[in-house]
């Protein structure tokens, strides 16, 4: 149990896909003009990630090495399409506002990377938890970005007017350059925090992530 929790926290914070590993960046800036979009995208990606990791992990011994890549892609693409269709059916507004970024989940490095690096070598439970951790880790960053952008750029949160009427929204923040800026500053903040933590108590966080290592090594040998 503790091990699974470690795997979960790993994705959530320690190896956060956006801030630490820095993969899957594209969608994080494109869809965070509103919090609703951010949540939608996060949920969508988490779904694809968890399902793909589950399936790959289940079949990991039935996948020939030489066509590993196409098979991963097929699995991921299938779940992406399912998610796309469901979104179109039940959340048409969300689906429209995210546009091409929904199908692009298929090439999101987070999914591909985790499937390759983790679930193709790990048992099912770990894979699912890893998917959840990574997915939620991705989602909270999206929300963090979107909160700043929607609040400053539109004066609202989740569509509700938050800022006083006299506030003139700084539209810059919902335009592309604003996306880059907010991401940059969030990342700087996270770097700074992480460095302080590391400086405070030696390299403990990385040590933590290493607690999943031993089995990983043995799995590889097998």
């Amino acid at each position: 149990m503790k091990r699974l929790f470690g795997v979960f926290v790993n994705g959530l914070i320690i190896e956060n896909p956006l801030f630490i590993i820095m993969i899957g960046l594209c969608s994080s800036m494109a869809v965070t003009t509103t919090v609703a979009n951010g949540i939608g995208m996060g949920v969508a990606l988490t779904f694809v990630l968890v399902m793909s990791e589950l399936i790959i992990s289940l079949f990991r011994n039935l996948i020939p090495e030489s066509i590993r890549m196409p098979i991963f892609l097929i699995v991921i693409a299938a779940f992406t399409t399912i998610m796309d269709l469901e979104m179109q059916a039940y959340f048409p507004v969300l689906s429209k506002s995210m546009g091409v970024f929904i199908p692009l989940v298929v090439v999101n490095c987070i999914v591909m990377g985790r499937v390759e690096a983790f679930s193709s070598k790990q048992p099912v439970a770990d894979s699912v938890v890893d998917g959840l951790g990574m997915g939620i880790g991705y989602t909270w960053v999206l929300i963090a970005l979107a909160v700043v952008r929607e609040l400053l750029g539109n004066g609202t949160l989740l569509g509700f007017q938050i800022m006083p009427a006299s506030f003139s929204p700084m539209i810059f923040f919902i335009l592309p350059p604003g996306g880059f800026l907010v991401f940059s500053l969030w990342m700087a903040a996270s770097n700074n925090l992480r460095r302080k933590l590391l400086a405070g108590k030696k390299p403990e966080p990385t040590q933590d992530s290493c607690c999943t290592l031993p089995e990983n090594g043995s799995a590889e040998k097998a």
Partner: peptide, 10 residues
């Protein structure tokens, strides 16, 4: 440029 983007009216 940022001001122009943010508050084009002003």
């Amino acid at each position: 440029a940022v001001l122009l983007m943010s508050w084009p009216a002003f």
